[in-house]
Design a protein around this nucleic acid. Sequence first.
DNA 1: ATTGCATAAGGAACCGGTTCCACACCACAA
DNA 2: TTGTGGTGTGGAACCGGTTCCTTATGCAAT
Lengths: 336, 336
Amino acid sequence: MSAIADVARLAGVAKATASRALSGRGYVSEETRLKVVAAATMIGYVASPNAASLVTGRTQSVGVIIPFISRWFFAEILESIEQALLARGYDMTLYNLPAPSEERERVFDFFLARKRFDGVISVGVELADSEVQLLHRLGRPLVGIGGEIPGVHTIAIDDIAAARLATEHLLSLGHTDIRHIGGDQIDQMDFAVHTKRLTGFTHAMHAAGLPTDGCFSPCAFTVPGGYDVGLALFGDPHQRPTAVFAASDEIAIGLIIAARELGIQVPSELSVIGIDGHPCAEMFRLTTIEQHPRNQARMAVESLLAALEPAAEPVAAGLTRAPTNLVMRSSTSAPR
Amino acid sequence: MSAIADVARLAGVAKATASRALSGRGYVSEETRLKVVAAATMIGYVASPNAASLVTGRTQSVGVIIPFISRWFFAEILESIEQALLARGYDMTLYNLPAPSEERERVFDFFLARKRFDGVISVGVELADSEVQLLHRLGRPLVGIGGEIPGVHTIAIDDIAAARLATEHLLSLGHTDIRHIGGDQIDQMDFAVHTKRLTGFTHAMHAAGLPTDGCFSPCAFTVPGGYDVGLALFGDPHQRPTAVFAASDEIAIGLIIAARELGIQVPSELSVIGIDGHPCAEMFRLTTIEQHPRNQARMAVESLLAALEPAAEPVAAGLTRAPTNLVMRSSTSAPR
DNA sequence: ATTGCATAAGGAACCGGTTCCACACCACAA
DNA sequence: TTGTGGTGTGGAACCGGTTCCTTATGCAAT
């Protein structure tokens, strides 16, 4: 519609002056600035970000790569990133990449190479070295959430410590027959988060002098996933553990629903602990290790935008630990 | 990095020819085309969409306005839209607008006015007339999902019919003491979807000659929302209805969990029906009216992209009904 | 009085593509 | 032989901003 040239004409100044007046860069007298602003608002001028980014190289938009949308953790992250970016005047372009695939290659070769964004936030996606290099070559900063990416600033909880804490909570209550139910390693999309939580569990058990052989059951990282495993596992009272550590609240909730259906009392017959802080945890009185995805998202945005400051040095690679805390409710107790 | 001028130089042709060769528009001999393509791949040329859109006015990206991310329906829609757009070479820019607010005005005045997108899909957001007009003035097609927007092509289920069908299912089983539990009208963000489902319920009840006074309980549109209402409502056996129609599966699931906690048998003491087709419905054997958000999303993307075809006429305003179907499981039965 | 600097504003180049226009060539019809 | 129309290509304008370079002015310092 209306271009900056129209504004300039209307205000009786040169394009250059109008540009300076509106962007606030360079010298413009207050009087001229007001004239230009008045002219701009009069004709409803909105700058074309395309034209601007063509010359500045900045697009005022950030790409977000995320493997799931509907899981609690990821949805929370997404909502917060979007809010934080919007508040700072950035657009958010979403790339939902469920698994390494041709789709994914396409995104990297085609979409991301088009440099339509000033930076990228990668949420729970295990990036290949070549993919990190591509972004690096494009001069686009990258920040990760949810796992370590070599050479990249990442915000993540300490999964091993969280899993150990959860397991230790069960141990401290006197449990010795504890089972870990978590993500299948074959499902690679989570930064080995599954493996880490299993590792934390194993550490804690071994430190207590307990064996862990056959103490792990894999399942889909969802409520129905936990439910299915729960039904299969708790059916036989002789096989049933006295406590389970679920790798996520969603799994834990599925387990509790299964237990209730089987008439197993939680916590007296079965203690359950999860990780996350899911909004349904309260409802199920679920003891859990809370993490705070919204904070993690805000930290990631802040880190990325700081790296986009004109004078900024590249983002320091490394790991920022997001805090977790144990919330005790009544899904765990001493074994009978 | 490398611009089309570099490609042209390397191939020994003019910029114009290189552009034609790469975009496939206009006359280029096969021989020249191959030379240009070879040169482009050699230096790893990727066109700058910014520069292109500056002149063509096309950005190859679509804006999506959505009020929630974490609710099942919206997450499904979002995932499908993203997939469909990606497959067609479009980027997706997300605007998450939980409520009418200054944020929202900012998005319209600032973000959407920047015409960074070729079209907009609005999911479950009640757009004001002025907002529709703004998009119209910008010449950007708009397609809605989940409710009617005047003058805009919208894909939506028939909420009134779905609610009536759900209620009729309960009536046909012999229930007369039926309660509807659904969204609070104060929560305006859903296209009066709450009101419509209530209307469908009322229609069905009245058609059966039953009163509906005091038969509606409002609640938050989530699992905990249903749970809270369930605890409050089912506690007193004399007040308890024999059947409830929940406005969403999430609410229905919350109700079932509450009922189980109170020791109420579903369905023998209490029938529950929902709307959605949530992945947890199976787990709770929930009878429900399924809708298919992924299909709705695909239809919306198709309609929008069709309107973006060079020769396309504007999207025909009007409503496309998305299908629903009753899935009978065992959360409903005849009353005792 | 001259230099120096900060402020102010205009002209023009430029970012990286697309597209209009002009021109050349060739085949075929009149 | 001349006209006509489809092909193929190059030059240049253009999209809408930003920024470099230049010039002009007022004022303080030398």
